[in-house]
């Protein structure tokens, strides 16, 4: 039962990858693409936690912690660049 639910969750994460990629390709301005990068990072965090369950190793959660804590620094650099105060 739990495995079925997690499989559905993984499919939803994959769907979000597809949708955000379409947004990245269409997005008229740079800001849309930066937001797409951020959403992709957050979806990847979810995917890695699900993988830690499926592959049966707890230590993979460490990777998602690093993702979660570093994902916004790159976005901050790009935002500072876009507001011309880097």
């Amino acid at each position: 039962m739990a495995n079925t639910l997690f499989t559905i969750a993984m499919l939803i994460v994959g769907l979000s990858f597809l949708l955000v990629t379409v947004r990245f390709l269409l997005g008229p301005s740079v800001v849309d693409r930066v937001v797409a990068l951020d959403v992709l990072t957050i979806s990847s965090i979810g995917l890695i936690v699900l993988l830690a369950h499926f592959l049966d190793r707890v230590i993979y959660v460490d990777v998602s912690i690093v993702y979660a804590i570093l994902s916004f620094i790159g976005v901050i650099v790009i935002a500072k660049y876009l507001e011309r105060s880097l």
């Binding site: 592959l55 049966d56 190793r57 707890v58 230590i59 993979y60």
Partner: peptide
């Protein structure tokens, strides 16, 4: 096979 880190699993 799994990652080369030896723990309880």
């Amino acid at each position: 096979r799994t990652a080369p880190i030896i723990d309880s699993s």
